[in-house]
Amino acid sequence: MPPLRLPREWPYWAGGITIALVNTVLMLADGKPWGITSMLTNASARVAELVGMRPSTWGYFQSPHREQALSDFGWLDGSLWLNLGIVGGVLVSGLLSREFHIRKAPRPWRKVALAVGGGLLMGYGARLAHGCNAGILLGAIPSHSLQGWVFALVTFLGVLLGVRFFRRVL
């Protein structure tokens, strides 16, 4: 017996409406829609500083806005808590519907290698493109930015390429 009766599944379009609603509130409250990877870049740059690297001197961080965002980054970063909230919201939903289980990473190291390799490609690519599916596809296209459309088209080609290339190893 589940602790609370939740609708078993919402249709996909309900997820689409959730994104549109939350992004609209974010635009009003924060002036920018949901993004993930810019915050992760700042976090990784701060970690890199701990091991003696000097990312703040890199060309990427020379724009006034990005320099500011990097030096302001800390435990009270808004984007950090927005994304922690997403993990928290999934956790609440999973616990209430009894779907949450800790699932250990599988032993075959091939799977771990694919996970790390895919992550590296995505992190590297997202930084070059100023963001990921969240910030650019769902954020820049509704911002009426031409760059969002270029990103969406080329990402589609990238997925096509990825499917062809990785199909045999998956």
Partner: peptide, 25 residues
């Protein structure tokens, strides 16, 4: 307000790598 960014070779290369990477990940 919003996400408005420049377009360059970085955009194209980045989106291509990002799209390819989400398949194995």
């Amino acid at each position: 307000p919003g996400n408005l960014y420049p377009i360059s070779a970085a955009t194209v290369a980045g989106a291509l790598l990002f799209g390819a990477g989400l398949v194995p990940a």
